[in-house]
Simulated scan of single mutants.
Amino acid sequence: MAENKVNITDNLETLKEGEVVTDEKTGKKYRVKKNIMPHYSAGGPHGLGDPEDRTLRKIEADVIIPNRMNTQIERVECNESYMGLITCFRTDGAVSGLNTCKPALELFNRCKYEKFHDPAFRTKITDEYIAERSAARASGMTSQQRKLEEYRDWKKNNESK
């Protein structure tokens, strides 16, 4: 009859920061490191999280992804109806435009509703976000910081010519 043996690492409350623990199965030694963030958010090459992690935190799923979806909808997906609404508000005025621009607003809202409830669109935006987050975790720099570094390298190479 096999005993259900509890590993020493199953309960980290008994371990102290910096203590060395040996894995019984593999014989590898690990130094105990405790922090507030879960291991997948604090690990990785730069301490920003595991670049291969594809899980989303609650704030990413509920706030960041919908904000990115909204931006993409306004700029690309429903841009014609959005610009029609903006033009209507500019010509009729913001206050009176609330009444006169209802057809343009209805058209934009319908387009936006269809995109927000399209699972393929949400998956596409989520995959783009995870790829960007993964690159940031792997390099230790955001996409804007990477673009700035690329520009600086390009500038340095072109000045010497």
Rank of each mutant, 00 (worst) to 15 (best):
M1A: 12
M1G: 13
A2E: 12
E3Q: 08
K5L: 11
V6I: 12
V6A: 07
V6M: 06
V6D: 05
N7A: 09
I8G: 02
T9R: 06
T9H: 08
N11D: 15
N11K: 05
N11H: 08
N11C: 06
L12R: 09
L12Q: 07
E13Y: 10
L15Q: 01
L15G: 01
K16W: 00
K16C: 00
K16D: 02
K16S: 08
E17L: 02
T22E: 13
T22Y: 03
E24S: 07
G27W: 08
K29H: 10
K29D: 11
Y30W: 15
V32R: 07
V32Q: 05
V32Y: 04
K33D: 03
K34L: 04
I36G: 10
P38L: 03
A42Y: 04
A42V: 10
G44K: 05
P45T: 11
H46Y: 12
G47D: 13
G47Y: 08
L48C: 09
D50R: 12
E52N: 14
T55H: 14
R57N: 13
R57E: 14
D62N: 10
V63E: 13
I64A: 07
I64W: 03
I65Q: 03
I65P: 03
P66I: 09
N67E: 14
M69K: 06
N70K: 13
N70L: 10
Q72Y: 15
Q72F: 15
I73M: 13
C78Q: 09
N79Y: 14
N79I: 12
N79G: 13
E80I: 15
Y82M: 12
Y82S: 07
G84W: 01
T87W: 00
C88Q: 06
C88R: 03
R90V: 05
R90G: 10
R90P: 02
D92H: 13
D92R: 10
G93V: 07
G93L: 08
V95D: 13
S96C: 04
L98Y: 02
N99T: 09
T100A: 15
C101Y: 04
K102S: 09
K102T: 14
K102H: 06
K102W: 04
P103A: 09
L105N: 08
E106C: 05
E106V: 07
L107F: 02
F108G: 00
F108M: 10
C111V: 04
E114W: 01
F116Q: 15
H117F: 10
P119C: 14
A120S: 14
A120F: 08
F121H: 06
R122M: 10
T123P: 02
I125C: 06
T126P: 07
D127Y: 01
E128M: 05
E128A: 07
I130G: 03
R133M: 04
S134G: 15
A136F: 01
R137T: 02
A138C: 03
G140Q: 05
T142I: 09
R146Y: 01
K147H: 07
L148R: 11
L148F: 09
E149G: 00
E149F: 02
E149Q: 13
Y151T: 07
K155D: 12
K156H: 06
E159H: 08
S160G: 12
